[in-house]
Design a protein around this nucleic acid. Sequence first.
RNA 1: GGCCUCAUCGUCUAGCCCGGUCCAGGACAUCGCCCUUUCACGGCGGUAACAUGGGUUCGAAUCCCAUUGAGGCUACCA
Length: 478
Amino acid sequence: MAYTFRMPIKVRFAPSPTGYLSLGNARTALFNWLFARHEGGEFLLRIEDTDKERSKKEYEESIIEELRWLGITWDGDLERQSERLPVYERYLKRLLGENRAYFCFCTPEELEAERQAQLSQGLQPKYSGKCGTIPRDVAEKRAKLEKHVIRFRMPSHEISFTDLIRGRVTFDLDLIGDIIIAKGFQEPLYNFAVVVDDEEMSITHVIRGEDHLSNTPRQVAMQEALGFRVPVYAHLPLILGFDRKKLSKRYLDASLKDFRAQGYLPEALLNFMALLGWHPTVDKEVVSISEMVSDFSFKKVQRGGAVFNPEKLEWLNAYYIKNLPADILAERMADFIPSAWLQEKEKLKKVLAVEKERLKHLSDFEQLASFFFTLPEYDPAFLIWRGSSKMIAADNLSFLANVVRGIPNHELWSKEAVEKYVMSVAEKRGRGEVLWPLRVALSGREASPGPIEILYILGKEESLARVETALKKLGSAR
RNA sequence: GGCCUCAUCGUCUAGCCCGGUCCAGGACAUCGCCCUUUCACGGCGGUAACAUGGGUUCGAAUCCCAUUGAGGCUACCA
C-alpha cells in the first residue's frame, strides 16, 4: 500500500537528542524543509528520545535553538517519542496478539556467545529465533516475572522500496533475524518507534541519511505486518570527513553550535549545506534560500558521499559577510565584540564597512579592528618605508600633520576631502614614502586598510594624536 | 565475512536518464600575472579528473557486465 494518490506532502526531521546538532543532521533537516516548502507540504519536528540513557534535555534545547538560528521552522507542535509511550504499547500488544512479535528471554551474554559462534563458523550472525517457539501463554507468564525484550518475527521474503535518489532498492529479509523492537512496553526501540510514528503522523516522504538505508527493509517489513502505508524514501549521501568516513560527533567542530560560535553566518551555512549533495539547475555557487526552495528537486541530488570542505564554507562565509550592509553586520556582530564598541554605533559601522572584506568569520573582526579603538604598541621601525629612512618618515609625517591640521573648517571632514589633501602630498613626496608611515602611525600595524580610510574614520583629532605619537617614536628611536 | 549503496580535477560538482555539440564546464584550494603604500578585495591566466578491464555501437564520461576501490549497516543506539 504505497502512497499512490496525490496527497499533501508531509515530512519530518527526527533527531535524537544524544548530541549537538551536527552538520549532517542539519543538512538532513534542510533537505526535508526545502522539499516540504517546495511542494507546499508540511515539515514536522519529532524528537527521538527513546534512548533514556543517552538523551539529554540540554541537547534537545540546543538542537531547537540551532534550527531556529538557521531559520528552519517546523509546522505544528514538536513531538517527543517519550511522550507517546501509550501509542507504542498499543501496537506492541497488537503485534504480540497477532503473533508477529514475541517475548525473548535470552540474556545479552547468551546472545553474544551465539553471535560469536556463528561468526567463527563463518555464518551470518542472526538471532536463532529460539524464544519464538515458546508457547504464547507460557511466554506471557514468564514475561511477568523475568526480564525480557520483544522481538519482531521477521518474514523471509524479499522486500523492495522506492528511493527517490537511488531508485528501487531490494533486500532479502531472510538475512535479517528477528530484531528487538522494544525492551518492554514502556521502552520501544528506534526501528519500531519510527514506523509507528511515521504512520500516525501520516508521513509521506522519509528523507534521511544513507546510514539508514539498511534499516529501511526492517521498517518496511513492520509496516507490512501492521498494515501501514509505506512512505517514499530518499536517502541522502553522507557527509564525510577528510578520511572519507562518516562525519560524526567525534569531530567536535562539526556541530552547528560550534560553527555559530566561530562566527559563521546561517545563510552561508545553509548555502553550503545545500550544495553538499544538491545542485541548482543553473550552475552557480551562491544560492539564496528562496532560490533553493523554488529550485529544489531530488533529481539534482548526488548519490555519492561528499567530503566536507571547510575552505569552501569559509569562502562562502566571507562572501556573505562582504555582501552584508554595514548596519546589518553591526547587529550580527554583537556577540563577537566588546560592548564598548557597540556604544559607538556610527564608528562601528564605518569600521565594518572597510574591514568586512577582510573577514572570513565574524569572530575575526575583534582582532582585526581593535586598533580603531585603541592604538597598539608598535615598533618604530615599522614606520619606515622600504629603502627609506627615519628622517624622511618623520619629515613626511610632520608635513602631513600640518596639512591635515590645515584642512579648512569650511570643508567638511569627509572622505573626499581627506583623500584630496593626503593624496596631493603623496603625489609630490612619493606614495610609499608618505602613505606607508601614515598608515602605520594610524594603525600601529604592518597590515591594515588604507590610511585615508583610517584617517577618515578616526577623525582629525585622534589621527593627529596618533601621528604625534609616531613622531615621538621616531625621535626616540634616533 | 555477509548485505546494501556509491565511483568525473586535491575537494564540492556540471555533463550521464534522452550516446556524437566534451582532447570534459564551473566553484573552492593551489600557482602565476595585473591592480596597489601594506593587508585584503577585485580582474586575468595556468596546473589538475571521466577508477580498471571487457562488451554494445560508425561513435561511450554517458548504455551493459565484471573487477577494483570507497562508504554504510550488520546493537537490548539512533
